[in-house]
């Protein structure tokens, strides 16, 4: 038998855990649970925590309303800008057309 096989057999041999192994695992699990519980108790135990909920909700509401209003204003502004550009385009082209008609008449008179 080679030394490698010896080492392998030794490694795979069943070993009994130390006598208080299970108790130590359970104790550690309980400790972690209690840390979480203490944290939650601290947070929920504060007098200001329940009061914070409506304040946060109000802040969210005001922020949301402001954002919506700004978005609405931007949409209205863009629409107004488009309307204005259309109006200027129509006004400009109609004035140009009138000017052209007048020039045509003047040109005709000069030729006569």
């Amino acid at each position: 038998m080679t030394s490698f096989e010896d080492q392998l057999r030794q490694a795979l041999t069943r070993k009994e855990p130390p006598p208080n192994f299970a108790a130590r695992v359970m104790e550690r699990a309980k400790r972690q649970e209690s840390v979480l519980a203490v944290g939650w108790q601290w947070l929920s135990g504060r007098a200001w925590t329940p009061r914070l909920v409506p304040v946060m909700a109000a802040l969210l509401l005001v922020g949301g309303a402001a954002f919506y209003r700004e978005h609405q204003r931007a949409t209205e502004g863009e629409a107004a800008k488009e309307k204005l550009l259309v109006a200027v385009r129509i006004a400009g082209s109609k004035l140009q057309k009138t000017q052209q008609q007048v020039m045509k008449i003047q040109f005709g008179r000069v030729n006569q």
Binding site: L85, V88, R89, A91, G92, S93, L95, Q96, Q99
Partner: peptide, 11 residues
Amino acid sequence: LSELGGHMGIP
């Protein structure tokens, strides 16, 4: 207004 001719689609 008529100076805008040649711009913005105004002939």
